[in-house]
Write a protein that binds this DNA or RNA. Structure first.
Lengths: 191, 191
DNA sequence: AATTTCGGCAAACACTTGTTTACTGAATGG
DNA sequence: CCATTCAGTAAACAAGTGTTTGCCGAAATT
């Protein structure tokens, strides 16, 4: 049923999805839906969890790896690129519903994204470049990274479905931007 | 009719909007809709144009102003804050439909945002800080700024509807992030 | 003054929708 | 082996849907 929903959400958004539509796609009767979810919103938050589970392991795999700034950036962008390719449907779902019309789903995504930022913040604190940084500054940097990741992922997704060469360009731009932020980080004097 | 649509899109997205719904809200008969638009998608792109007209003047008012980096940042964030407050419905519409389920609307928004980035890029080229920068680097910086603006606006909107004190925090974070980028800019060695 | 366009209406068409109800067979657990 | 939970069904409900059609009055053009 989740798969059916995800498949339909490829070119639709949750608010316009119908119970009957989902069950039809899943090859079930309409009533069967209510055996599993009270709402379509509930199906939505289930999909959020499914989508972010894979994201979590991705983030960790980037942060765990040590190394110079350059390698870290290259590796981060690579991982994002791969992730978008391998989980297109989930990424599209998240991008679409992050500001979508269903409040509960929006909140679920936002909460999880906040947890990401916190996790990134902790990892940043361990890097030598961050010596002397206040918690506030670390937080704002973490948010900047997370937002940038989300933007990049969305852009990559849109590009890869239209014109794969544009995806390369977007990845390259993302690397440059991360490099710029990295430079800013090295010369940061605190707020 | 546009107003009616915009009003309904406060807690719904375009894909789930109905012709009858719009005409009912506007106090007209269903058939009247087709006198003005062939599609709901057409109404959507009309709203896109309406929404981005005001954004355009906003951007210019920031870029025109000269001054030190600090004042420019403060001014930019102030203008965004004001804009979000004054055009909540339009901003929400853009945030929601940017990755929404209606292709034509998505494309309209993306195209216009691209034009923004180009405009910002030209303005950046004129600033003394950018001496010696390649077109590519200027472009990536412009995109970074535009993406950051969009993220900030979305976050502000979400916050201001829930808890106005959180909006202050978001604005402060945005200022810090812009400052960090600004530092990176000053020490950039080219790509 | 005549004609055409414009913006509006009511009614009708054939569907699709969400949700509930009563019912059924299979798996599961005591 | 019996009872219960689980996951499914068909049928029915009232209500809402997009779109077309033919019609009408006012405004604008000629």
């Amino acid at each position: 049923m989740l798969d059916a929903g995800l498949h339909l959400l490829a070119d639709q958004n949750l608010a316009s999805l119908g119970v009957r539509e989902v069950t039809r796609e899943a090859g079930l009767s309409p009533a069967a839906f209510y055996r599993h979810f009270p709402d379509l919103a509930a199906l939505g938050v289930a999909l959020v969890e499914e989508s972010l589970a894979s994201l979590h392991v991705m983030i960790r795999s980037v942060l765990a790896e040590a190394g110079g700034a350059e390698e870290l950036i290259d590796r981060a962008v690579d991982v994002i690129e791969r992730h978008v390719m391998d989980h297109r449907a989930h990424v599209r779902f998240l991008a679409r519903e992050r500001h979508g019309g269903v409040r509960r789903v929006r909140e679920a995504i936002d909460a999880e994204l906040g947890r990401f930022a916190a996790e990134v913040g902790e990892a940043l604190a361990l890097q030598p470049v961050s010596r002397g940084w206040s918690g506030r500054d670390l937080g704002m940097l973490a948010e900047l990274y997370v937002d940038h990741m989300v933007s990049t992922a969305s852009a990559l997704l849109e590009a890869v479905e239209a014109d794969p060469t544009r995806a390369q360009r977007i990845a390259a731009t993302a690397r440059l931007q991360l490099r710029l932020i990295s430079v800013g980080r090295r010369h940061w004097q605190g707020s």
